[in-house]
Amino acid sequence: MSTLHPSSRAVQVAGHELWLLAEKAIWWPQQQVLMVADIHFGKAASYRALGQPVPGGTTAGNLQRLDALLARLPCRRLIFLGDFLHSREGRTEHTLASLTEWRSRHPSLAITLVRGNHDRHAGDPPGELAIEVVAEPLLLGPFALQHEPARCPGHHVLAGHLHPAFVLRGRGRQQVRLPCFVIGDGLSLLPSFGHFTGAMTWQPDADQRIFVVGDGGVWEVPGPPNER
């Protein structure tokens, strides 16, 4: 039985407890399901193929964070909410070899990919990764697990795609933009899990709670949106 880590936050969504993790993922303890959005494997390699000077090591870093979560949580199923691979150019021998080696360390783990817009262009993961690939929505209990944040009648949508971030403002011109979870009425968003994926500044609606991620923790932004 897993215990809520001090860096995480538990929220009630559609009558179920979900944990918002500092690693920018969601854990559903009742079902022992880990949800990750927008990991974008091979994105840095895609840019390097275009001659752009971008850092390496992003695939290894993403896999290390996944390994840490899987070691800490009794996970029965890992669900990627879209954009597993960034592009066809990112399907390099090194990236695919790293993914194959990682999968070999978790042979009994059920893994599902809800196909996102980048997956449709990059192609599905290689068969040796043993990843079930489905179209959205993936209906699981009260939730519709999707990549695109479109409402699904009768279900609470958990989605990615938009890479939300929130700007915290201090004195004067001080401000910092942090990735965030957006928990709303019928639709909630995960931040992008992957390194080197960018973010979209989020302006919350009145029914949305914002939980920012930074410095190894998750914090709710207090007060109604017009007071933030």
Rank of each mutant, 00 (worst) to 15 (best):
D124K: 12
Y47Q: 01
T92C: 05
A60Q: 10
H155T: 00
A49L: 01
L81P: 00
G170H: 05
S98Q: 12
G82W: 07
E220T: 14
V221I: 09
W27S: 09
A199H: 15
P6A: 11
V212P: 01
H5R: 14
L81Q: 02
D207V: 14
V167C: 09
W19K: 09
R173Q: 09
L168H: 04
G154S: 00
R169E: 04
F80W: 08
E101T: 15
D83L: 08
S98F: 07
P179R: 02
V114W: 12
P107R: 09
R171A: 13
V54N: 02
Q203L: 15
E227C: 08
W219R: 07
P224M: 12
V13L: 09
R228G: 03
V114A: 13
D215H: 12
H40C: 06
Q203P: 03
L21Q: 00
T92S: 05
E23R: 07
C152E: 13
I26C: 04
E132H: 11
R120M: 11
L139D: 04
H161S: 03
L70V: 08
W19M: 05
L63P: 01
L70R: 08
A199S: 14
Q175D: 04
Q12I: 14
G223K: 03
S188N: 07
T201A: 08
F41W: 04
E148H: 09
Q146T: 03
E17H: 03
L4D: 05
L187N: 01
T59K: 03
A159S: 02
R228I: 10
L190M: 10
T197F: 00
E136P: 00
L113V: 05
I26L: 13
E220Q: 13
F80A: 03
L70Q: 11
I79H: 01
F196Q: 04
L109C: 04
I39F: 07
D119F: 13
R209W: 13
G56H: 14
R65L: 14
G57D: 02
V221C: 02
V157S: 01
D207L: 11
T59R: 03
T197D: 08
R171T: 14
R115E: 14
H94I: 15
C180R: 01
R115V: 13
S7R: 15
W202C: 10
A22W: 00
V213C: 04
V33Y: 06
E220K: 02
H106K: 05
V167F: 11
P149M: 01
T58V: 14
P125C: 12
P153F: 02
E136Y: 13
L139M: 08
L158E: 00
F181G: 10
H16W: 07
T3M: 15
D83P: 00
D38A: 14
D185N: 11
I183Q: 06
R72T: 04
N62V: 15
L113Y: 12
R91F: 13
A37S: 07
R169W: 15
Q32Y: 02
G15Y: 06
A14D: 07
P222D: 08
A122S: 15
E227F: 09
S7M: 11
M35D: 05
V114S: 08
G184S: 08
